[in-house]
């Protein structure tokens, strides 16, 4: 009985303690109201935080991405030569677009092209493209040279992911003439990505590439290079 009375007395006398008590009461009220408010619907909050679709979407790009990443590296080493050696022989010098169609007709055997088509039903998944280089000369015999060009160019190809915006993938195709000493001329964009910065970075990647001199008797090569930026 005496304790609360004494407390009250001292509170009345001291404005500081008064302020403390008022603030204490206010805070307690706030805290209690908050915790009550929180208790009312705690499950909903928890659910929101976990974002289930986040977990679901994670493996999906992987399913697309994993095979293309693993294979194209090997494909690149052997494929470009085969493609250029075998196909153009049949149809002489076909235009670039014609070539592309050819490839798409012939390649469905590969899993790469099939897989996305099957999964398209789920979402508007884009075709998974990879960087790809084509040399005009049909039977260019030096295999190492393909890889060296690819290494030289892709060393400079590191565009910021932010350029993608909401896209999953952007591709830009450039075309250039390669002189005997490895110098690049007549560099142009043959298929724009419609992102000016990405286009510029693609031109830059080719321009800054240190391409080795052309071995053998060939004095000049025309090269088409598709550079892809995809979400990883």
């Amino acid at each position: 009985m005496s304790m609360p009375a004494a407390l009250l007395e001292s509170v009345k006398r001291d404005p500081f303690k008064k302020a403390v008590t008022v603030s204490l009461v206010l805070h307690l009220f706030v805290i209690i109201s908050f915790t009550l408010h929180d208790m009312m619907k705690p499950r909903q909050v928890v659910k929101k935080a976990y974002l289930f679709d986040m977990v679901n979407t994670r493996p999906q790009p992987r399913r697309f991405a994993a095979p293309p990443v693993a294979k194209p590296r090997e494909v690149k080493k052997q494929e470009p030569a085969k493609k250029t050696v075998e196909k153009p022989k049949e149809k002489a010098i076909s235009t670039k677009k014609a070539k592309k169609e050819e490839k798409q007709k012939e390649e469905p055997k590969e899993q790469l092209q099939d897989e996305p088509k099957e999964t398209v039903q789920e979402k508007d998944a884009p075709q998974t493209l990879q960087n790809e280089m084509t040399i005009s000369q049909p039977d260019f015999p030096f295999k190492y040279y393909y890889q060296q060009i690819i290494n030289a160019v892709e060393r400079n190809w590191n565009p910021p992911q932010e350029l993608l915006g909401s896209e999953m993938q952007l591709a830009v195709e450039v075309k250039f003439r390669l002189l005997k000493n490895g110098q690049v001329t007549d560099l142009e964009i043959s298929e724009s990505s419609w992102n000016t910065i990405l286009d510029k970075l693609a031109l830059r990647a080719i321009e800054k590439a240190r391409i080795p001199p052309i071995p053998g008797d060939e004095s000049e090569l025309t090269i088409t290079y598709r550079l892809v930026l995809s979400r990883n």
Partner: peptide, 21 residues
């Protein structure tokens, strides 16, 4: 999130994008 639901938060990504660019 934009992978999950493309509509959400697009505006914010654009802002962040500029900064990094």
């Amino acid at each position: 999130r934009s992978v999950a639901g493309r509509d959400s938060l697009l505006q914010d990504t654009v802002v962040a994008e500029d900064k990094v660019d």
